[in-house]
Write a protein that binds this DNA or RNA. Structure first.
Length: 386
RNA sequence: GGGGAGAUACCAAAGUGGCCAACUGGGGCAGACUGUAAAUCUGCUGGCGCACGCCUUCGUAGGUUCGAAUCCUGCUCUCCCCA
């Protein structure tokens, strides 16, 4: 059981250091569940579980500072009644560090078959039992109040790629109208569990520069504790993604954390940091890990490949997780190939630890002034296929 | 000793005259995965060229036929039942 009592306090963001050569900065976000040192990577725990990694290892080994939950999935299972009876998601899953919940906007996009977008909200059928539901900017706030997320995400439409200009524009405008409604509801309601929650708006606009500028200006006009960039890493070329980040971060307040939703590869993250992004999340370290892809400082390993069959060297020499020295590549390959649960667990632990090492190291480099050189070296190495 | 069933590619298992280099599953090899309906999905898996094609395969040796994994005969082996 959780025995701590979170304090009520305003969320604060303080920038501790700027890189100088890029837009990168190192900061700290104060929440009711403790500080988050940025730049940060947030492991994804969709249904109240970072797949394959338990809460203790998440803290002691991965060194996660904040994790994600998903409104859509938690709403369907276990449901808000259970979450409220549990006293919120933190208590339910026994996690006393910050939680950010995605609003379900991405699910509305990815579960396209059964959704219908209307002015009032998104109408959809549950992928579990087919039951019909409506998500509105207001009830998604209400649900996230019950979940008790420290950071509540706005309800948006995440446009697919490719997406023609007129649809992207209409969608963005809808997202903006939903934003105003969501903020209104949020500001009219109180947290249920005694600690501060905050609400992040989301920039949309697909890959269109003028739409991104308009969207960034619109959301920046609302004074919030942080801002998110959505609708990227959905299949567009990475250069377009980087361009959009630059355009948007030009406008978003410098003194507030910026969250690039759903990104990405280790290289994407370093490029994002260099462009002034502070927060990232992605399923890649866990999902790809379960499927045998390992991210290391020297590049990417497909541990299923036969070339590792008799390689008894450590998973990663001097790696960030205890599993790196404890187990050999040959053993991990055997586990993954044999579809052993432990293989997925070790790979997830390794990848998440590596991601957290990466952002922590980036922060240290920003602070000591060596970020630029280090980043360009790392970007070369990280994409190598070993 | 008597009766019955069967031998197909790495394994299992379809196919019973041409559309069969041979369904399907497993295994093997490779690839994909970016706000998680994913411990998932895709491709390849006889040889050579790798598009088209050519060559060698369905226990084994013959035979019938324009044509056989598929029909006939001998042989070898395996399994089951009864003594």
């Amino acid at each position: 059981m959780v025995i701590f009592e979170p304090k009520i306090e305003d969320m604060k963001f303080e920038v501790n250091a700027f890189d100088g050569n890029s837009e990168a900065r190192a900061g700290i976000i104060e929440t009711g569940h403790g500080p988050i040192k940025t730049p940060i990577f947030m492991p994804v725990g969709t249904v109240g579980s970072v797949k394959g990694v338990n809460q203790r290892d998440l803290i002691t080994d991965v060194k996660a500072q904040i994790i994600l939950g998903n409104t859509y999935h938690l709403f369907l299972r276990p449901g808000i009644e259970t979450l409220e009876l549990a006293g919120g998601l933190h208590k339910f899953i026994s996690w006393d560090k910050p939680i950010l919940t995605d609003s379900g906007g991405y699910q509305v996009f990815s579960l396209a078959e059964n959704r219908k977008l209307k002015e009032d909200g998104a109408h959809f059928s549950s992928h579990i039992d087919g039951s019909k539901h409506i998500f509105t900017p207001e009830n998604v706030v209400d649900i996230q109040r019950v979940i008790g997320a420290d950071i509540v995400m706005a309800f948006d439409e995440c446009t697919p790629f490719p997406c023609d200009y007129s649809y992207a524009k209409k969608s963005m405008q809808l997202t903006h109208r939903w934003l105003a409604r969501g903020i209104k509801r949020f500001d009219e309601t109180e947290p249920l569990y005694g600690y501060k929650q905050t609400y992040f708006p989301i920039v949309q606009g697909s890959v269109y520069k003028d739409l991104r500028i308009e969207s960034a200006n619109t959301i920046a006009s609302f004074d919030r504790d942080g801002y998110a960039i959505g609708g990227l890493s959905v299949g567009e070329p990475v250069e377009e993604m980087y361009d959009m980040i630059e355009v948007v971060n030009e406008i978003l307040p410098k003194n507030k954390p910026r969250y690039l939703m759903g990104v990405g590869t280790p290289v994407n993250i370093l490029e994002g940091i260099a462009r002034g992004v502070d927060m990232f999340d992605c399923v890649m370290p866990t999902r790809n890990g379960r499927n045998g892809m390992l991210f290391t400082r020297d590049g990417i390993i497909n541990i299923k490949n036969v070339k590792w069959k008799n390689d008894f060297t450590p998973i990663e020499k001097n790696g960030a997780s205890f599993v790196d020295e404890k187990f050999s590549k040959a053993y991990l390959r055997h586990l993954i190939v044999s579809k052993e649960i432990l293989g997925a667990q070790i790979a997830s632990l390794h990848n998440l630890s590596f991601y957290l090492w990466l952002v922590t190291e980036a922060r240290n480099r920003i602070v000591d002034g060596s970020f630029a050189v280090w980043k360009s070296e790392m970007v070369q190495k990280l994409a190598v296929r070993l």
